[in-house]
Simulated assay, not measured.
Amino acid sequence: MSASPGAPDAAAQISGLIFAVLLVNEADCIIEANPAAEELLGRSAGKLTTMELGEAIVIDDERLRESLTKRDAQMIVRGIAISTGQGGRRVNITSSPMHSHPGWRVVTLSELGQEGNDGDDEERVELRAPAVLAHEIKNPLSAIRGASQLIARRASERDRPLATMIEGEVDRIAQLIDRMQQLGSRSSVQTGPCNLHEAIRNAMATVRAGRDDGCELVEEFDPSLPPVEADQGALEQVLINLLANACDACSNVEDARVSVRTRFVSGLVFSAIRLGKATRLPIEITVTDPGPGLPSHLRDHAFEPFVSGKPHGQGLGLALVRKLLRDMGGRIAHERDERAGLTHFRINLAVADRKPS
């Protein structure tokens, strides 16, 4: 089938793809890289074309690393952890040999959830199941709470604390269930122009008001940033969660300072799928703390439900953070800098189409 007059050529089509494409020769050298590859791997096309594939994409799993060196075999791998010039990523990788050029192949990479909604839908199914269960639990919980209040009024002075404890535990479980339902919610988020620094300062004020541990919250703002596309209430909830976690993480660090940095990411622009189209996410918020970070075995699972590095953590906070940001068309990533002893949580958001009214 021939291209219609004026249709973009193959190079233009590949440049427009939202997933990374690398052309690799028989010596495993990268010959061409599209813009999405530059974004994902954190290096310019000029730099990538001076590297071998194994230098640009570092895979810890030895078996998978060996599979990627097989030039004449097709390969599809999902959810693999890699290291790039932009830090750690979890990606899907394909390797397709070019039979017209023996030894040559096309390698594609896409971050989880980028190739449509399959991964996201699967995650939502997993989250909706506990949400449905939570709904069924709340009715008997209300009955138990009411009964405990009735018992407290009729109980002796000696037994009243027991009834009060039952009521308190019911309230704690109800709060946990509310968060589970938030994770499973499919309600849409209404976004609009949002003053980024106002949202951050509101979140900082809330966290400061609720703590007395002396953890210092530091602003490192770029005042020239434009409004972002977000729901301000949801964004503040995200930031409160990240700031509170950061303060908890460095509770044993003397003179702890948690910094919040904002910047426009020039030369490195992420893409996410929102409403069926690619969206550029150049506004970055980084929350940094000097705590010990998550245990190494949990770092690849930081945003999964019911995963927590805290002794009594529920593992819902970061999962909810990721859901809220995805609903706003944004993204979040976690990075540990062992050399500096710092943990970074990076949020990326889109620039608003219009100024706030």
Score class of each variant (00 low, 15 high):
residue 18 I to D: 13
residue 18 I to G: 09
residue 18 I to W: 03
residue 18 I to R: 12
residue 19 F to R: 09
residue 19 F to I: 07
residue 19 F to K: 09
residue 24 V to S: 02
residue 24 V to E: 07
residue 24 V to P: 08
residue 26 E to T: 06
residue 26 E to G: 09
residue 27 A to F: 04
residue 27 A to W: 01
residue 28 D to E: 13
residue 29 C to I: 04
residue 29 C to G: 06
residue 30 I to S: 02
residue 32 E to G: 05
residue 33 A to W: 00
residue 34 N to Y: 00
residue 35 P to G: 00
residue 36 A to D: 01
residue 36 A to T: 00
residue 37 A to V: 01
residue 39 E to Y: 03
residue 40 L to I: 00
residue 40 L to V: 03
residue 42 G to H: 02
residue 45 A to I: 01
residue 45 A to V: 04
residue 47 K to S: 10
residue 51 M to D: 06
residue 52 E to M: 13
residue 52 E to R: 14
residue 53 L to E: 02
residue 53 L to T: 02
residue 54 G to D: 15
residue 54 G to N: 11
residue 55 E to K: 09
residue 58 V to L: 11
residue 58 V to G: 05
residue 60 D to W: 15
residue 60 D to V: 13
residue 61 D to R: 02
residue 62 E to P: 15
residue 62 E to K: 13
residue 62 E to A: 13
residue 64 L to H: 13
residue 64 L to W: 05
residue 65 R to K: 15
residue 65 R to F: 12
residue 66 E to D: 15
residue 67 S to T: 03
residue 68 L to P: 03
residue 68 L to E: 14
residue 69 T to H: 08
residue 69 T to E: 11
residue 70 K to D: 10
residue 71 R to I: 10
residue 72 D to P: 12
residue 72 D to C: 05
residue 74 Q to L: 15
residue 76 I to T: 14
residue 77 V to R: 06
residue 78 R to V: 13
residue 78 R to M: 03
residue 79 G to P: 09
residue 79 G to K: 05
residue 79 G to E: 10
residue 79 G to W: 04
residue 79 G to N: 04
residue 80 I to P: 04
residue 80 I to E: 04
residue 81 A to P: 15
residue 85 G to S: 04
residue 85 G to V: 05
residue 87 G to L: 06
residue 88 G to Q: 13
residue 88 G to H: 05
residue 89 R to I: 09
residue 90 R to C: 15
residue 91 V to M: 04
residue 92 N to Y: 05
residue 93 I to A: 07
residue 95 S to L: 05
residue 95 S to T: 06
residue 95 S to P: 01
residue 95 S to W: 02
residue 95 S to M: 07
residue 96 S to C: 13
residue 97 P to V: 10
residue 99 H to Y: 11
residue 101 H to W: 06
residue 102 P to Y: 06
residue 102 P to M: 06
residue 104 W to D: 10
residue 105 R to I: 03
residue 106 V to H: 02
residue 109 L to S: 00
residue 109 L to D: 06
residue 111 E to V: 11
residue 112 L to H: 07
residue 114 Q to H: 13
residue 114 Q to P: 09
residue 114 Q to V: 09
residue 115 E to M: 15
residue 118 D to W: 14
residue 120 D to I: 07
residue 121 D to P: 15
residue 121 D to L: 14
residue 123 E to R: 14
residue 125 V to H: 09
residue 125 V to F: 13
residue 125 V to K: 14
